[in-house]
Write a protein that binds this DNA or RNA. Structure first.
Lengths: 208, 208
DNA sequence: GCCGAACCTGTCAGAGACTGTCAAGTTAGG
DNA sequence: CCTAACTTGACAGTCTCTGACAGGTTCGGC
C-alpha cells in the first residue's frame, strides 16, 4: 500500500509539515525554543494545538525530526558499502550524506543558527544525542552482520564495532563544534575529515 | 557560608534525598520508569509531590542525578593529571572513578538492573547522554588549558581535543553495552580496557 | 455522478511534569 | 526566649502530550 509515487495525500501532508516547521523555526530563532509554546506555533499557521501534534510526535521533533530521514539514508548506505572496506572509511562515506543538509549554499544561513540553538538548548541537545545513539545502535548491528557474513563474527560481548562507530560519531560532533567555533568557514566536509583524522581504529579492518 | 564540615541541615538533606531515591528506584524496578508517577514516589516516602521536586529538579535526576557528583570528581582528577601524560591515558584513569559506582561487590546487584533501565528508557538515555556531553565539554576545555599551559595551544577550530575526549566516552559507552550484553561477567575495569584498546588517538601526545 | 470508507480537523477533557505563592510549622543562633 | 532562616503542605497554574468524539473532506470503486 505504500506509494512509490508520493500521491496527493502524502504530498499535502509534507507541505503542511514544512509549513509548520518553517513557522516554528522562525519563532524559535526570534524568541527562543523554550519561550515558544505549541500554541504560539499553532496560531502562527492557523490551526489547533492538537493538529500540530498530529504532524509531529513531540515539540523537539519540530527541530530534530528531519534527521530521521537522513538517518535512514545513512543506514542504507552503510549496508551497501563493500564488505571488505575498512570500517572507518565506511563511516566517513556515510557522513557525506549529512553534508548537503548543513553546508548547501542556500541552507547555510538557516542551518547554522539552528545548529547553535540545538547545541545551546539542553532539551534539544539531549534529543539530538539520543537520535545519534539510536543510529549508532543500528550501525553496530549492521557492522556485526557484515563481519558475520564475511566469516569473522564478533562476539556479543566484543565492544569493538560499537566503540569504532561511537568514535566516528564523536568525531562528527567534534567537527560540528569546530565548524561552528570557526564561524562556519570552509567546507563542512573538510571539518569532518580533520576530526576523523585525529583518530585511528585499531582492529576491524583498520588501516594503520 | 558553605560548611566544610557537612553540618546538620545538609546531613538531613542528604538523608532525605537517599530515602527518596531508594523508594523511587524500588518502584522503577518494580513497575517501570514511565509507569511510576511522582505522586507514587511521594506517597511511598510520605511527603507531598511538591517536596519531591524540592529535592530533585526533574524526575530523571532521581536516576541519573548522582552522576553529577562523579562528574565533578572526574573533572578534578583530569586537572590533576601530569601535563605531559598522553590524553588517552588520562581519560582511562579518570574512568576508574566510575568503577566503584558500578562494579562494587554490594552495588552490583542494584547497579546492573538500573543501567538496563537507563539504556532501555528513551528519556533516561537522552538525559544520561546529555550529562556525558556536558562532562565532555568541560573535559575539552580542560585539555585545551593544559595544552596552552604547555606552550602548544589548540586553535579554537581544532577538533582534536573534543574528538579524542568524545572517542574515549564512546569507548566507555561501548564498554557498558558489552559488559551488560555479556551478563556483567568479569570486571567493569577490564571491559573499559578492552573498549579503549580498539581506538588510538593520532595526535595530542598520542602513544602509537 | 454517487457512496461508503478512510482521512483530517477542531473541540473538549484529562494525565503528568513542573513552577510560583502563601501560610503554618520547625529549627538555628544570639 | 525570640527573631530570622529554613522547610513543608496545600493550592493553583502552565505546558506538553494523549484519548475520544463529531463534523467535514477526500479517495476509490461503481
Amino acid at each position: 500500500m505504500t506509494d512509490s509515487q508520493p500521491g496527493l495525500r502524502e504530498r499535502t501532508r509534507r507541505a503542511v509539515q514544512k509549513e509548520i516547521t518553517d513557522a516554528a523555526n522562525a519563532l524559535f530563532l526570534e524568541r527562543g525554543y523554550e519561550e515558544t509554546t505549541i500554541g504560539d506555533i499553532a496560531a502562527a499557521v492557523g490551526m489547533s494545538q492538537r493538529s500540530v501534534f498530529r504532524y509531529f510526535p513531540t515539540k523537539e521533533d519540530l527541530v530534530v525530526g528531519k534527521f530521521d530521514f537522513v538517518a535512514d539514508d545513512m543506514l542504507q548506505a552503510l549496508r551497501e558499502r563493500p564488505a571488505g572496506e575498512p570500517v572507518w572509511e565506511s563511516m566517513r562515506r556515510i557522513f557525506d550524506l549529512l553534508v548537503p543538509y548543513v553546508d548547501a549554499p542556500g541552507r547555510r544561513q538557516v542551518a547554522e543558527p539552528m545548529q547553535r540553538i540545538v547545541f545551546s538548548t539542553p532539551t534539544l541537545l539531549a534529543s539530538y544525542l539520543q537520535k545519534l545513539q539510536l543510529l549508532q545502535d543500528t550501525a553496530d548491528t549492521a557492522l556485526r552482520e557484515r563481519a558475520a557474513a564475511a566469516g569473522v563474527p564478533y562476539h556479543d560481548s566484543d565492544p569493538t564495532p560499537r566503540a569504532i562507530v561511537g568514535a566516528a560519531f564523536a568525531c562528527l560532533l567534534a567537527a560540528q563544534h569546530a565548524w561552528l567555533a570557526g564561524g562556519a568557514e570552509g567546507t563542512f566536509a573538510t571539518a569532518i575529515d580533520r576530526a576523523m583524522a585525529t583518530i585511528t581504529p585499531r582492529s576491524g579492518n583498520g588501516a594503520c
